[in-house]
Computed example of a mutant assay.
Amino acid sequence: MNFKTPTLLGHTPPILEIPAHQLWHRVQRKTALENSVRHKGYVLAPPGGLAGRFDLADEATAYLADSPETALYESLFRREVRSCHVSRIAQRALLSFETTSPLRLADLRGLEAHYPVLQSMRYETSHAFAAACRQQGLHGVLYASAQHPSHSCVGLFGTGIDRTKRAAAVDLVQAGTGLLHKAVVLAARGSQVPILSE
């Protein structure tokens, strides 16, 4: 295959191969919305919305994190959030996905100081980069969490999603008792985002 490494603002990031049997985590709705994409245990936003950093115009992208807490910081306890209602948390589950085959990813970690666009809300550049990565046969993009310092996230394209399997799923609020998952407690405490019940 004639492989050309995609560039980001003139910089050629390294390509990293992540071995099989690695665990990645995500928070997602327990019940899919009408237009959600459901595939291999994932409930994903439909393509075309381009609301995520590495979204593609014609294919859903799955976002996962290196720890349950990072997944929660990226989804429910983001920097701009002032509070989170327990009913919103109860609508979601924490899922773990295991890689079944190696993943070839563009590694953008460490480039944030040179390219602040990697953690800004201006997504046009990162959308174009994601499309170039997919065109060159990469399975996704590895990047530093903008919400949880020193942690990593991955955006997987369809070929990357197909190289994972769901390993576990647990409700964030335990049915019957209303107890919060430990990772929720840790993320709420770390982010100082109050959880509201009324």
Results as ranks from 00 to 15, higher is better:
Ala57Trp: 06
Ala128Val: 13
Gly190Thr: 11
Thr12Ala: 14
Val141Phe: 06
Tyr73Ile: 04
Leu56Val: 03
His39Asp: 09
His85Tyr: 11
Val37Thr: 05
Asn35Tyr: 10
Glu17Trp: 12
Ala65Thr: 01
Val193Ser: 04
Gly155Phe: 05
Glu74Ile: 08
Asp162Trp: 09
Ala32Arg: 03
Leu179Ile: 10
Glu198Arg: 13
Tyr73Lys: 06
Val173Thr: 03
Arg104Gly: 02
Thr159Cys: 14
Gly137Asp: 08
Pro116Glu: 00
Pro102Ser: 11
Leu9Pro: 11
Gln135Val: 03
Glu98Ile: 02
Gln28Pro: 00
Gln91Ile: 09
Cys153Asp: 08
Ala93Glu: 11
Leu105His: 08
Leu108Ser: 12
Lys182Val: 12
Leu108Ile: 05
Leu44Ser: 12
Tyr143Lys: 01
Ala113Cys: 04
Ala188Thr: 00
Ala32Val: 13
Asn35Met: 06
Asp55Met: 01
Arg189Ser: 08
Lys165His: 03
Leu103Cys: 09
Cys84Ile: 10
Leu64Pro: 01
Arg29Asn: 04
Gly176His: 11
Pro47Ile: 06
Ser152Phe: 12
Ala132Leu: 07
Leu72Lys: 08
Asn35Lys: 12
Arg79Lys: 08
Ala51Val: 14
Leu142Phe: 09
Gly137Leu: 01
Pro13Lys: 12
Pro68Ala: 00
Leu76His: 00
Leu9Asn: 12
Ser197Phe: 11
Ser36Arg: 04
Ser96Lys: 08
Gln119Arg: 14
Val27Tyr: 03
Thr61Arg: 02
Gly178Tyr: 02
Gln192Arg: 15
Val43Arg: 10
Glu17Leu: 15
Ser191His: 01
Asp107Val: 04
Val141Ser: 04
Ile18Trp: 07
Ala183Val: 04
Cys133Gln: 07
Pro68Ser: 00
Lys40Ala: 14
Phe3Arg: 13
Ala130Tyr: 04
Arg92Leu: 13
Arg79Asp: 10
His25Phe: 14
Cys133Lys: 07
Pro116Trp: 05
Ala169Asn: 07
Pro13Arg: 11
Ser145Ala: 03
Arg109Thr: 13
Gly158Arg: 10
Pro14Met: 09
Ala168Asp: 14
Ile15Asp: 06
Ala146Lys: 15
Tyr123Gly: 04
Thr177Leu: 07
Ser67Gly: 02
Lys165Asp: 01
Gln91Arg: 11
His11Glu: 10
Val86Ala: 14
Ile161Phe: 03
Glu69His: 04
Gly110Met: 06
Arg104Ala: 13
Lys182Asp: 15
Ser150Gln: 15
Gln174Glu: 13
Leu142Ile: 13
Leu180Trp: 02
Gln136Ser: 02
Gly52Cys: 12
Gly110Asn: 14
Phe129Asp: 00
Arg134Val: 05
Phe77Asp: 02
Val141Leu: 04
Arg38Thr: 10
Gln119Val: 07
Leu16Tyr: 13
Phe54Trp: 06
Ile18Thr: 14
Arg163Phe: 09
Ala187Ser: 01
Asn35Trp: 04
Ala62Val: 01
Ala188Ile: 03
Thr61Asp: 05
Leu33Arg: 12
Arg26Gln: 03
